[in-house]
Computed example of a mutant assay.
Amino acid sequence: MRTRSQRQRRRRILQAAAALASRGGVEAMQMRTVAERAGVALGTLYRYFPSKMDLVVAVVSEEIDLLEASIERRPPGAATPAGRAVDVLMRATRGLMREPELADALIRSLVMSEVEAPFGDRMAGLLLRVAGGGLMVENASEEQFGLASSLSGVWVQELLEMLHGRRTYDQIQRRIELAASRLLADF
């Protein structure tokens, strides 16, 4: 269990890393620079995050935590499972696009990562909960989890297309709506 000062130190590190990535991508997240900006020794940073990719994964996890908190405060109101899933994914898109450099850096790093990142599974679990009316991963069938994972994968790909200027927000929304209506039809 972490002490309050350890949690605060970890939070400062994550904020420093996210701020650097939002200005210059993952390349700007040099461990020494993150440590300096967070006001911690480089050794302390490595105790919390043994590698740069571990740090990236932690920043992504924080973003998902924020999305989950937003959904708890204001649950999707759509009547259909697909509508609720689209609401969540488009909310996540808007949140990420507030800092496009950070979004691009995080998504690219996760796609290319050799570090196990729970991003896909967490997004799939979130989609299961909202689309399935509280359905938890442990209670979902393999097919249900697979469909939610597939929708999450479609979203990541569409997000990359938007970050590269090949899709607009409206185009992504239409594609996500189409994928969700097909993938979640039997939920």
Rank of each mutant, 00 (worst) to 15 (best):
R2K: 12
S5W: 09
S5N: 11
Q8V: 06
I13Y: 07
A16K: 09
A18Q: 07
A19P: 00
A21F: 06
R23N: 10
E27K: 11
M29R: 05
M31K: 07
M31F: 04
T33R: 14
T33M: 09
E36I: 04
R37D: 08
R37V: 10
A38T: 02
A38V: 05
V40M: 03
V40D: 05
A41H: 15
A41K: 11
A41T: 09
L42M: 09
G43D: 13
G43E: 15
L45W: 02
Y46M: 05
R47V: 12
K52N: 07
D54C: 11
V57G: 14
V57N: 15
V59H: 14
V60K: 08
E63K: 12
I64R: 03
D65C: 12
L67G: 03
R74I: 03
P76Y: 02
P76F: 03
A78K: 03
A79F: 09
A79V: 13
T80H: 04
A82R: 05
R84M: 08
A85G: 02
V86M: 10
V86D: 04
V86Q: 01
D87Y: 07
D87R: 02
V88G: 02
L89K: 01
M90N: 01
M90R: 02
T93H: 00
R94H: 07
R94E: 14
G95S: 05
G95R: 08
L96M: 14
L96G: 15
R98N: 08
P100S: 00
E101V: 07
L102Q: 10
I107R: 10
S109E: 09
L110T: 13
L110N: 15
V115L: 14
P118R: 10
F119N: 06
G120T: 13
D121Y: 09
M123Q: 00
M123K: 00
A124D: 11
G125T: 00
R129V: 02
V130A: 00
A131I: 00
A131Y: 01
G132S: 11
L135G: 00
N139S: 12
A140M: 01
S141A: 08
E143D: 11
Q144M: 08
Q144A: 00
G146L: 11
G146A: 13
L151E: 11
W155H: 09
Q157D: 14
E158Y: 12
L159E: 05
H164C: 03
H164D: 11
R166T: 06
Y169H: 13
Q171I: 01
I172Q: 13
I172D: 08
I176Q: 07
L178T: 12
A179M: 08
R182P: 03
L184P: 09
F187Y: 13
F187E: 05
F187M: 14
